Amino acid sequence: MSGTIHITEQDVWSTGTATFANIVERTWEKLERSERLLLDRAYSPMKEGFDFIALDELDEASFRAFCRGCRAAFDECQSKQLVQPPELFSGVMDRWREFMTMLEADDRFDDASLNN
Rank of each mutant, 00 (worst) to 15 (best):
M1D: 13
T4F: 02
I5K: 01
E9A: 05
E9P: 05
E9F: 09
Q10I: 05
D11F: 02
D11Q: 14
V12F: 05
V12L: 10
W13K: 04
W13R: 05
S14Q: 15
S14D: 13
T15L: 09
T15R: 00
G16C: 09
A18C: 12
F20T: 09
A21Y: 03
A21E: 11
N22S: 06
E25Q: 08
W28D: 00
W28Q: 00
E29N: 04
L31F: 04
L31M: 01
R33V: 03
E35N: 03
L38H: 06
L38N: 00
L39F: 08
D40F: 10
R41Y: 14
Y43V: 02
Y43H: 07
S44C: 04
P45W: 13
K47A: 12
E48P: 10
G49A: 08
D51M: 15
F52R: 14
I53S: 04
I53K: 04
D56I: 01
E57W: 11
E60I: 07
F63T: 03
R64D: 01
A65S: 14
F66Q: 10
C67Y: 02
R68T: 11
C70S: 15
R71S: 11
A73G: 04
A73S: 00
A73V: 02
A73H: 01
F74M: 11
F74A: 00
D75G: 08
D75H: 02
E76G: 08
E76P: 00
Q78L: 15
S79N: 10
L82G: 03
V83W: 00
V83Y: 03
Q84P: 01
E87T: 02
E87V: 07
S90A: 04
S90Q: 09
G91P: 11
V92I: 13
D94E: 14
W96E: 05
R97K: 12
E98H: 03
M102D: 05
A105H: 01
D106A: 00
D107P: 15
D107Q: 15
D107S: 15
D110V: 15
D110H: 13
D111T: 15
S113E: 15
N115S: 15
N116I: 12
N116A: 07
N116C: 12
